[in-house]
Design a protein around this nucleic acid. Structure first.
Length: 105
DNA sequence: AACCTGACTCGCC
DNA sequence: AGGCGAGCCAGGT
């Protein structure tokens, strides 16, 4: 199991209607320091449509600027459709929609 | 094979 | 409070 695969497993485990931060995903796969690697893993996203990378946001809930399917704007739309609330155009309401605990895979 | 870079986060100045 | 460097992994040059 490579680090990237762990990242994908963790991201897939994020329940619909919720979001997780890069830090949470990193923590779930071993170390918080891997947060950067998490970003890169999603960057090279080998399974578009399978890995819900739109449910991963920065620690303060802001969506990533460089997004695979059309920008953070698009990511925000997908999340809203799942019922995730936003405090503004680019920030998810973390207090209510961030997963309390990301299952360790 | 070494070096650079990239969807991040945290600690120190 | 804002900026800078460090730590982590994989793939391309």
């Amino acid at each position: 199991m490579t680090t990237f695969e762990k990242v994908y497993e963790a991201v897939k485990s994020i329940p619909e209607g919720s979001v997780a931060t890069y830090g949470q995903v990193a923590e779930a796969i071993g170390s918080r320091r891997l947060s950067r690697v998490v970003g890169y893993a999603l960057h090279v996203n080998p399974e578009p449509g399978v890995i819900p990378c739109h449910r991963v946001v920065k620690k303060d809930g802001e969506v990533s600027g460089a997004f695979a399917f059309g920008g953070g704007r698009r990511q925000a739309e997908l999340l809203r459709e799942e019922g995730v609330g936003f405090v503004d155009e680019t920030h998810v309401d973390m207090e209510r929609y961030r997963v309390p605990f990301l299952p360790l895979v």
